[in-house]
Amino acid sequence: MDFKIQTQDLNLTYGKFHALKDVQIQIKPQSITAIIGPSGCGKSTLLRCFNRMNELIKGVHITGRIHLDGKDIHSPDVDLTILRRRVGMVFQKPNPFPLSVFDNVTYGLRVHGVRRRSELEEAVESSLRATWLWDDVKDKLWGPALALSAEQQQRLCISRVVAVRPEVLLMDEPCSALDPIATGHIEDLMRSLADRYTIVIVTHNMQQAARVASECAFMLLGELVEFGPTIRIFENPKDKRTEDYVSGHYG
């Protein structure tokens, strides 16, 4: 089977701190993969490797390989802006720009040079429909995005990424700022998006991982301890450390 994302001996250091240690992970296309593990184990760091966001941070050093559709994302002929268009990211806190809803959704397209009004309008409608936000905001497309509720803002942030037609969606604890009901809605949304996108989600919430992800990775202190089908990770972990974690013996 062809994996969407595949890493080989991935190591990352922040200065002297070794944050990722020999990580090997294979992410299947059109599925949801969850990354779980205690705070500070390197989940976000791993996620941010996939769209090369760690490069914004001073003192980061990466070795090893990351393949997207079999092609090394660090190879010199990779255009970073195109890579980030293909691998979109949703952050922990809903963070729409202080612009209108419309301008938020079209930001990415405009950055990539789309100017045609009709094309932008079409993208706004289809992206907002994809995140089930269209009916809520279709009358306030020119209103400020920051006036929306937290859940709507997070869905807007997902629409904003979806608008540039990515192939992969990276989500770093996308529900941690939301209440349980909103969280449920976002989880439903993720499942509905999974037949078009490869989704990688970082979460602290093991039930969430169990609910949405078909594959699950457990990390500890920068190491990928165990990786496999979610059901097996939760019901039949091979590693003692995974077992302790999923049975609630770690923080």
Partner: peptide
Amino acid sequence: PYAYREVSYGLGSTRWQMVTRVVLQS
């Protein structure tokens, strides 16, 4: 906020686009 810059880069903008469309706007 730094988050705006991250989002802009995350959507594939260049630094110049990020500066003119997000930072200077805000």
